[in-house]
Computed example of a mutant assay.
Amino acid sequence: MTTETELAFAHPEARSVATADRPLDRLSLRNHLAEVEIGAFQSERNVVQRLQFNVVVEIAPLPNDLGDDVDRILSYDRLTEAIAHELAAERFNLLETLCERVADRILLQPQAERVFVRIEKLDRGPGALGVEIVRKKGQAVSEVEPSSALSPVVAFLSEKAMQSPNLTSWIDQLAAGAAPIVFCVAPDNTVAQGADTQAARWRMALLGGELAAWRLADKDPRCVVVDNRTELDWAFKNGQISVWAPTKIILDTPEGSAVTVESGPELARWFAAFIGAKEVLIFGGPQEQDGWPTTMPPRIINLEQREL
């Protein structure tokens, strides 16, 4: 039988099981290390210490129709991002305060019901010195605002732009900016040639979009093909240039069947609104401008015949 003393020093996962009032699924992060300046003593000023984080999140039951879909779960990245965000926000004197901030930020996630956070200093003595707290939804102590990620920019590339000798220069200049970049490439409409029905042409246009995305990634290794919202969020926060492969998001979105995927500009406009982009950059000829309401956000800039 597990004793209270054994539980006191057990991993938070064991403690969460022992103290559960109802069975919940659990997501855990074990032995996550970070090097930071922290501490209330003068001897801890201007000194970097190793912190070890162990986190267990009890989550709401997964939907029966999960379908192996990464966008419908609480991602491990949310745990490490919560830690990184709080460590970057300010210098902490107390582990207790840091524990509270990390726990409260994790509980902002809709799936999170209860969280165990243990943080230990590894360099203050022969052993590990630490604090562990337990918090549940609605029990937030600190005032935590959701993190405000930089608003991304969607860069639309027409077939003409994909063949431009300026393509690498455009990517260089976009990469040098502060905003996250995601490319939307005009679909390869040759895929749908010969299709007899609108349904077939629509699905083939999605395949043409996938093909075009991989062609851009093949041209420039900095451009990474992504197909789901979880990957996009990670890319925006980590400075990765993304190329959108449209099939998954379009098919998973209730209004997706109404999107005119055969038109590259229309598809890019819908995608920009979907991810909250602050602007759309157009690389291509004037024919791609048809039907774009320049008074409607996101702001549309025509970059035809010039570089950034």
Rank of each mutant, 00 (worst) to 15 (best):
P23D: 02
E132I: 08
D233P: 01
I83W: 06
P293A: 10
I83F: 05
L281Y: 01
W244M: 07
V134A: 02
I38Y: 00
R203T: 15
G127A: 09
P12D: 03
I275V: 12
I73G: 06
T80I: 11
A176R: 09
A245T: 06
W292C: 10
N64S: 09
E255Y: 03
K219P: 03
I241D: 04
R30P: 03
L174V: 05
E304T: 10
S242G: 13
A82D: 05
F283L: 14
E143Q: 09
D290W: 06
G209F: 04
W270P: 02
R105Y: 09
F92M: 08
W234C: 07
L87C: 13
V226E: 06
P221K: 15
D69G: 07
I106G: 07
C99N: 15
A149M: 01
A217T: 12
E307P: 07
Q109T: 10
V153H: 00
V224F: 08
L174Q: 09
G285S: 14
E90Q: 15
A14S: 13
R50M: 02
W270R: 06
R91I: 09
A277L: 06
E96D: 15
T197D: 11
F283A: 14
L251G: 01
Q139H: 04
V185G: 03
K137H: 01
D233W: 02
R50G: 00
P286D: 08
N54L: 03
V36C: 00
A14R: 15
D220V: 10
G39T: 01
V117P: 01
N64M: 03
S164N: 11
N93R: 14
I106L: 14
V36P: 00
S142M: 08
F271Q: 04
L267V: 08
P126N: 01
A213Q: 05
K219R: 15
I133Q: 05
N54T: 10
L94V: 12
P126R: 04
D172F: 04
V141L: 05
Q198K: 14
L29E: 05
N31A: 14
Q139G: 00
T197A: 07
I275D: 04
E58G: 02
L24T: 07
W244K: 02
Q42G: 08
G125Y: 09
D233C: 06
H85L: 12
V226C: 06
A140G: 03
V182C: 12
A84V: 06
L62P: 01
I249V: 15
L216V: 11
A10R: 02
E6I: 08
E210V: 13
G256T: 11
L108C: 00
D188H: 13
P246D: 05
W214L: 13
Q52Y: 00
V70D: 08
N166P: 00
V224W: 11
L303P: 04
V57I: 10
P187H: 09
K121R: 13
A88L: 04
S43E: 14
R222G: 07
A277C: 09
L157M: 08
K278S: 01
A161P: 02
E288K: 01
N46A: 12
